[in-house]
Design a binder for these strands. Structure first.
Lengths: 350, 350
DNA sequence: TTGGCAATCTGTAACGTTTCAGTATATCTA
DNA sequence: TAGATATACTGAAACGTTACAGATTGCCAA
């Protein structure tokens, strides 16, 4: 036990992973020098620096995260905050991979911080900020006036939002241009002779709800089509609710001949509702839908789709937070992804 | 600065979150006593214990994770190791939520450790073990002879596998009974008069590949049906590959009149392939598919489905790892989820 | 020769926690 | 009464890191 203690003191302890002390012992330098040499500090001799870094690489030294975190407060963690029951499945999967892809080349880890329907969305944010559990945060389901963004801004926690806010404040974000999506969708339907359009929108409250609505309205007046209100449901509603509401709508005298849908799963429900009403997709009505994985064309080849790339969103968001942490100006860390053209796979008219 | 220093020493520092020192100062006790009182150590007076815990709750004390981790080596982290490009989307999403649900009531955090196609699956595992970045690990895509499981076993890292191994070694797992699934699927198809069945299997190499194959074979001989080989693709193949292979198969003289499919997305491709060949689902051929979210019936109501609950899997896996960390016997932390009955939504045959 | 200065390197303390080895007091035993 | 024992508490050290405030050396100007 005495020997063991001496070995420890000398940093020569055979078992356990190498620490600065180990390196110091091996190089004959002090821990401080080793520490500084590893991070290219200026007051270290060029030769010493190279020597230390060589040895460090050889024995596979990796800084102890707890030590760094305790001393500096840096966690090397990015937290992705997700709603447990409202988030789109492919969104979760793709955004995680997108973020991971970027973090993989950094010392950062991704931790997933979930919150559920019943919880205040602020709760996980407060936890992260108060406990300093992360160096940066990514949030989704962004609102025009988002208390989470405001809170993090006030408390100096770097973050990026999926979707924009509208509170006269600048912060990193990545967003898909849903205004442009709605416009393209309406134009396409109009070009096929559709004149009475319904929109299955994102949930009211989120910023991209109004982006989508505005794009839809702008394009309607541009092409001279009219709107059939369909605002009792949103893509946050259950498949069954959307299906029955759609069927209900389609049985009315004044039914739409075109749909714009903001989510792929919801589109399945819309189509089911249309068919429940005895109508036929591509003949009686057309549907333009966003999708994040290329599956809708298998469902009904008559569907018109616009792709949204969540993996890209994840990567962009990760890059943004890291940029902010690294000291870049928040205003330079914003990106907007433009929708590609409306894709048709097999369509009677085309 | 002198004052600030004194305040810090006394633990009365106003800013920053409370530490043991703060609590010690407030209660007039030593840090050691406070530390022990908070974890119900035996040698602390009942009244003192209550007093400390009261104050701690009042001021919202939360142990500093870095401090604990540095001192004890405990990370309070469970790592979910995922394959970036082969994992099913709904699997990722649901399992994360399942795990989260369980971890939410513990001090544990979930960190996602991804690896990509190009990487050795062992790499993230070695990283986790060597750096001690997690107290427990959850892995998927389990193989009969799984080097990851063996490695973690050898290195004393608690883990749970989604799917079983077959190396004469005991460890926690959660699995879906794919043997039973295949049997039920075949029986159902047989009961509808289907006699020439094809199986779209999991990727060879994973344990549940042979479970599924065995169930399929067992049931075939039970019901006296025959197999139409379809083993040039698995559910890991691309949608397009599965689709074209299916179409190819269906154009052959000796084509199947029934399919068993191990994944929902693959089923979309199978159906597309069937229809490419000019045949009709429910008339010329029937398909029984696993699904993890209730969407297939919207796709084609003639589909027969068996549900697999990935969220449950996540919860079970989390409970298992926590149990192992907590000292329970690995053998007592294994669970098998039985498939429900084969569900039909709308089928010509009733 | 002396002092000054730059270039390198180093020891100490601190981050917040837990463990170890105590100390002080009260209570029991003989 | 003396000693033993149980009870309740405490300080110091350590985990691995970095920041601070030196320390040592060599070299050059005056």
């Amino acid at each position: 036990m005495d020997k063991q203690r001496r070995d420890k003191k000398e940093g020569a302890s055979a078992q356990g992973r190498p620490t600065l002390k180990t390196l110091a012992f091996m190089t004959g330098l002090g821990v401080t020098t080793v520490s500084r040499a590893l991070k290219d500090a200026p007051e270290i001799g060029a030769e010493t620096r190279r020597r230390v870094q060589l040895v460090a690489k050889q024995i596979g030294y990796r800084p102890n995260r707890a030590g760094v975190r305790l001393r500096t407060g840096r966690t090397n963690v990015i937290s992705l905050v997700l709603n447990t029951d409202r988030e789109i499945m492919s969104f979760v999967s793709d955004i995680i991979y997108g973020v991971s892809e970027v973090l993989a080349e950094t010392p950062y880890h991704l931790i997933v911080t979930p919150y559920s329907r019943s919880q205040d969305p602020m709760e996980p944010i407060r936890y992260l900020v108060e406990t300093g559990s992360a160096d940066g945060v990514i949030i989704s389901r962004t609102q025009p006036n988002d208390p989470r963004a405001r809170y993090m801004l006030e408390h100096g926690m770097p973050f990026a939002t999926h979707g924009r806010t509208d509170m006269g404040v600048v912060h990193p974000y990545h967003d898909f241009d849903n205004h442009a999506f709605a416009i393209e969708a309406v134009r396409r339907l109009a070009s096929m002779g559709r004149r009475k359009l319904a929109l299955l929108s994102p949930p009211p409250g989120l910023t991209y709800y109004s982006h989508t609505l505005n794009g839809f309205a702008d394009a309607l007046s541009e092409v001279g089509a009219s709107e059939i209100p369909f605002n009792t449901v949103s893509i946050d509603h259950s498949i069954e609710q959307i299906r029955s509401r759609t069927a209900q709508l389609m049985r009315r005298e004044n039914r739409p001949d075109g749909f714009v849908s903001s989510a792929a799963a919801a589109t399945l429900a819309i189509v089911a509702g249309i068919e429940d009403a005895g109508l036929k997709l591509g003949r009686d009505v057309d549907v333009v839908s966003k999708q994040s994985s290329d599956l809708l064309h298998l469902f009904r080849p008559e569907l018109l789709v616009v792709n949204e790339n969540f993996r890209l969103a994840g990567s962009e968001l990760a890059r943004s937070v890291l940029g902010w942490i690294g000291g870049a100006a928040p205003g330079s860390l914003q990106s907007l992804s433009l929708p590609g053209e409306v894709l048709a796979y097999r369509h009677p008219a085309g």
